[in-house]
Amino acid sequence: MPRDVETRDAARNVLADLSRLSPAYGLYSEVLRHAEKNIARSLEEGAAMDDEV
């Protein structure tokens, strides 16, 4: 998950300075969405493991 947090933060930084009309905007938006999805999944899996104990 640490790598996903780094990826999320980097994508946010790039998107903050990028025009929505830039061809790279879609790429970084997708990178951000994917990282956020992975973070959420990791947190859910961690909570599920805590519930099992």
Rank of each mutant, 00 (worst) to 15 (best):
V31P: 01
M49P: 02
R20D: 12
H34N: 13
H34C: 01
A24E: 07
P23L: 01
A48Y: 12
T7Y: 01
E6W: 05
K37S: 15
E52G: 02
T7S: 06
E52D: 04
R8W: 07
A16S: 12
V5Q: 05
D4G: 05
L15C: 09
R41C: 02
A10F: 10
D51F: 06
V14E: 01
M49V: 08
R20A: 08
R33H: 06
E45D: 10
R3K: 13
E52R: 05
R33C: 05
Y28K: 01
N13W: 05
E6Y: 07
R12Q: 13
V31H: 00
D51T: 03
L15T: 10
L27Q: 09
H34F: 08
V5Y: 00
A24V: 01
G46I: 03
V31M: 04
R41N: 08
D17Q: 14
E36L: 14
L43D: 10
L18R: 03
R12A: 12
K37L: 14
Y28F: 15
A16H: 14
S29Q: 15
A35C: 08
K37N: 09
R33T: 09
E36C: 07
A47L: 11
D51S: 10
Y25K: 03
E6T: 13
N38R: 12
D4Y: 06
L21K: 12
L43C: 04
E30D: 14
A35L: 01
E44V: 06
N13I: 05
N38D: 14
L43M: 15
D50G: 01
E52H: 03
E36N: 08
N13S: 13
E30G: 05
